[in-house]
Nucleic acid binder design. Structure first.
Length: 304
DNA sequence: TATACAAGTTGAGTTACATCA
DNA sequence: TATGATGTAACTCAACTTGTA
């Protein structure tokens, strides 16, 4: 009874999947979340989509399931959020789409749309980009000018998508690839390098969050199962302590464990534990014995 | 020693929201 | 009451620093 139920529950945990080495390969798809705050839900949903290029897990059974591929969908990019990004990003994208044809990145120096953000002149001019490039490692802010210290560069949509595309192919770049990508995007190799570093960090962070969520669900499931089994044990104990009730159990069942497959099973009435022939291997016995023989030597599991 | 990377930090930019005139 | 300007907290992300293999 217990064994059969345990099998049905399918509470198998592949904890090896959580090893550091396999972390990138570990991908999780959660069907539901225990903390369904709208924001979290949406965030986690894109994360689960984004980080499931190799497969998904059933959150209920904690099983690792077959791979899921989403052809044509950028799985590393979150879908547009309903609230926040709808208002802002779309407008911004429209702006960008309308006004920024250049693949060069945007350097914003004035904050906020409210203050009437204008298209940054640096977008069109390669000179400003060059100036920004000079502000990276190896060139001090003094050389760059105090007013230009650490201006935030914003990668254009095109640049981001190319980088994402490249990241999907490989999470690290060799120097040649870095050079080529930088040239293609009109960025410095250092910027490409930094982008990949940050991207890897984000990926790992999100994966960790997903793993935490998954483990939490597994823990919840196991806790629930444990509670259920303890309750069952209590009930069985109670039955055993009250002989009248115990005797009324019809038909009487006997729990036994098969020495071969170690399954716990309930023997039907009339079946009792008896030894198999001493000179016969259990597996051979299983394979050869007829049902009639089994009633004589009922130690054999009738399931395996 | 040089290099690449991870982890952590910094700071500019962005957004949502509250407040006020 | 509706509207626009302003302030601010929370957030994102490029760039940086540091430690390590």
């Amino acid at each position: 009874m217990i064994a059969a139920e345990n099998e049905d529950l399918g509470l198998s945990l592949s904890l090896a999947s959580f090893s550091r080495n396999n972390q990138e390969q570990l991908s999780v798809k959660l069907n539901a979340y225990s903390v369904p705050s709208p924001n979290n839900l949406q965030k986690l949903q894109w994360m689960t989509d984004a980080f499931s290029p190799f497969g998904h897990r059933d959150s209920t059974s904690c099983h690792v399931a077959a791979p899921i591929f989403l052809p044509g969908i950028d799985v590393n990019r979150p879908p547009k959020a309903a609230g926040r990004e709808d208002n802002g990003e779309d407008e911004e994208e429209e702006e960008e789409d309308a006004g920024v044809d250049s693949p060069n990145s945007t350097i914003s120096s004035v904050s906020g749309k409210r203050s009437g953000r204008e298209p940054d002149p640096s977008v069109a001019g390669a000179d400003e980009n060059e100036a920004d490039r000079a502000s990276s490692r190896g060139v001090s802010d003094e050389e760059d000018g105090p007013e230009n210290s650490r201006k935030k560069l914003r990668l254009s949509k095109d640049q981001s998508s190319v980088l994402e595309e490249s990241f999907r192919e490989h999470h690290t770049l060799n120097p040649k690839q870095k050079q080529a990508l930088a040239k293609q995007l009109g960025l410095r190799p250092r910027q490409v390098e930094v982008w990949f570093q940050n991207r890897r960090a984000r990926t790992k962070l999100k994966q960790t969050e997903i793993d935490c969520e998954f483990l939490k669900r597994c823990c919840d499931n196991l806790t629930e199962e444990n509670r259920r089994l303890q309750k069952e044990v209590q009930e069985l104990k109670a039955l055993k302590l009250s002989p009248q009730l115990y005797m009324q159990m019809a038909p009487r069942t006997t729990l036994t464990m098969c020495p071969s497959c170690e399954r716990v099973t309930a023997l039907p009435p009339g079946h009792h534990l008896r030894a198999k022939p001493m000179n016969q291997d259990l597996r051979t016995y299983h394979a050869s014995s007829q049902p009639a023989e089994r009633t004589t030597y009922s130690l054999a599991c009738q399931l395996c």
